[in-house]
Design a protein around this nucleic acid. Structure first.
Length: 491
RNA sequence: GCAGCUGUAGCUCAGUUGGAUAGAGCGCCUGACUGUGGAUCAGGAGGCCGAUGGUUCAAGUCCAUCCAGCUGUACCA
């Protein structure tokens, strides 16, 4: 009789994550959380599923959700979706629980979902680690956001100089748009001229000044032959934009001065520059240098909800991947000020600012840099089950080690002692405790240090010698077991 | 989404102008070695050649469509 057998397979853009990656991720998350909590951000957890209206992702003029999110209808025909970031849920929480004390400072880690084209380091389910302050207009909160990002990156082992926080202000971008005559940002429509100009500015680091100019005017054809039609701006309109792009990322005060000469006539632009100056004062007071945090007028970030300062964390070093190709990591996090997010629910203006670290991308980077201890298990000791007559003794040995806080596995398979060593070797368990009749009657146990043995095995020995010498193995008195194991593990 | 490239064993890949039972290395399993990882040696398992249709006496090989992956580009709240 034939039965239907499902093929084991993964849905596009999703993945299984095994112990070695998870153990590294955990190390990283612990470090980040430690920094967030140092600044007084309290943890929060919300569901992965929200109403689409909560996420604000209905398409304009239509009853259907944005195509970029995973959505479905419940039994009452309401649209439900997987969250695409943690900020929308935060604003819902702030609108829903009215007695929350403000400023509300929370951090949150969890998976988010986006229905986009997946790639090598680009999945449809990935982790973000956010921190936000809701209910403060103070630029100190925005400056603090940058500091938190710096501290967190350094805490996980990225040295100063290998990362950079790039800061800009949406108000200044608005100022340029106003000065050029393109008009202010209107977030209600996706296809306005202002939006498209911002998209072009965002590409500056990739396509350069010439490329941006082409996009703003006549259009551009890239190396693959793809054609993008231009926005058809006039010379007068593009000239302040091009001047703006060339300000660069020098001294923070100088950047502000230069920006002032370009957008000085725009009220909103001036406001943005004032905000940056205030952030700079804060950063200087705290000792955060230009090498860590710069003002970069070309930073745009997502188009959606930012209203003031925006920042982006990038890794500045390059690394070769397994195939020897140069890999550079772009943005590994970022954030900014969003003063209108809670307003959607309550009508009240609630100023807020915060940022987020892209956990998976950062993890990939750290793996290639070798900043994390790579382990395929957290188990330290395997108690070998050699003699069926002593199974309960093995249990008690394992229990004793566990009571001492040592991660211990009792071998539960059906292989002989040789197979058990092989198992420990493959699983990267560093120590094996072995005992048989001889040891029990002598009141002893054998400890084998597999990692030390691996080193010894590099000199080629014949089988007989290898077995007879029992490399990296020694006997201990039964009562010294825990102490000796701890010593060997450097605990 | 659009364009180009790729899809053969768990992994990395061979496979002639279309030609008979589809190969290698690594890994895996078994044994030499019933109380010791590695090295060595001997043996073994493992494949609807991404899927479906077509051309042909004959398809891993050619054509079409689909699926998946890679590269670029667009979008990325």
């Amino acid at each position: 009789m034939k039965r239907y057998k499902p093929k084991p397979r993964l849905y596009r853009g999703f993945r299984d994550i095994f112990a070695s990656d998870l153990l590294m991720r955990q190390q990283m998350l612990d470090s980040i959380r430690e920094v967030y909590e140092l600044y007084g951000f309290a943890p929060l957890e919300t569901p992965a599923v929200e109403f689409v209206e909560t996420l604000g992702k209905f398409l304009p003029e239509s009853q259907t959700p944005d195509g970029g999110i995973f959505s479905f209808q419940n039994e009452d025909d309401e649209w439900i979706a997987l969250r695409y970031d943690l900020t929308a849920s935060l604003s819902r929480v702030c609108a829903q629980y009215k007695d929350i004390q403000r400023p509300f400072r929370r951090c949150q880690v969890g998976p988010v979902y986006r229905l986009e084209k997946p790639g090598p380091d680009h999945f449809r389910e990935f982790y973000q680690f956010d921190f936000d302050t809701v209910g403060t207009k103070s630029m100190m909160a925005d400056a603090e956001g940058c500091c938190v990002l710096c501290d967190a990156l350094e805490k996980i082992g990225i040295e100063r100089g290998n990362y950079l926080i790039k800061v800009n202000n949406r108000k200044i971008l608005n100022g340029v748009l106003e000065t050029s005559g393109v008009g202010l940002i209107d977030t209600s429509t996706d296809d306005s001229r202002a939006m498209n100009v911002l998209r072009s500015i965002d590409k500056y680091d990739r396509i350069g000044l010439k490329g941006v100019k082409e996009l703003l005017t006549t259009g551009r054809e890239d190396a693959s032959g793809d054609v993008m039609k231009g926005l058809g701006l006039s010379e007068n309109e593009i000239s302040p934009i091009l001047e703006y792009l060339q300000v660069g990322t020098g001294d923070r005060v100088e950047v502000c001065d230069q920006l002032e000469s370009i957008v000085g006539n725009s009220e909103i632009g001036m406001k943005g520059i004032e905000e940056l100056r205030e952030i700079d004062k804060n950063l200087r007071c705290l000792g955060y240098e230009e090498g860590q945090i710069v003002f970069d007028p070309t930073v745009v970030r997502g188009l959606g909800y930012y209203t003031g300062p925006v920042f982006e964390a990038v890794l500045t070093f390059e690394v070769k991947d397994e195939k020897g190709r140069v890999k550079s990591f772009g943005s590994i996090g970022g954030g900014g000020r969003y003063d209108d997010l809670v307003k959607r629910f309550t009508g009240q203006e609630v100023p807020a600012t915060g940022a987020s670290i892209g956990v998976d991308r950062l993890l990939e980077a750290l793996k290639l840099v070798g900043k994390l201890e790579e382990r395929s298990t957290s188990t330290s000791v395997l108690v070998a089950a050699m003699d069926k007559n002593h199974l309960f003794d093995y249990q008690l040995i394992a229990k004793e080690l566990r009571s001492a806080g040592i991660n211990t596995e009792l071998y539960l398979g059906n292989k002989g002692i040789g197979g058990q060593f092989k198992y420990a070797d493959k699983c990267k368990i560093p120590l094996v405790v072995v005992a048989g009749e001889d040891e029990f009657s002598a009141g002893e146990l054998q400890i084998k240090d597999l990692e030390a043995g691996r080193e010894l095995a590099k000199e080629v020995l014949d089988r007989e010698t290898w077995r007879k010498d029992r490399p990296a193995q020694f006997a201990v008195k039964r009562e010294d077991l825990v102490a000796k194991i701890k010593e060997t593990l450097n605990l």
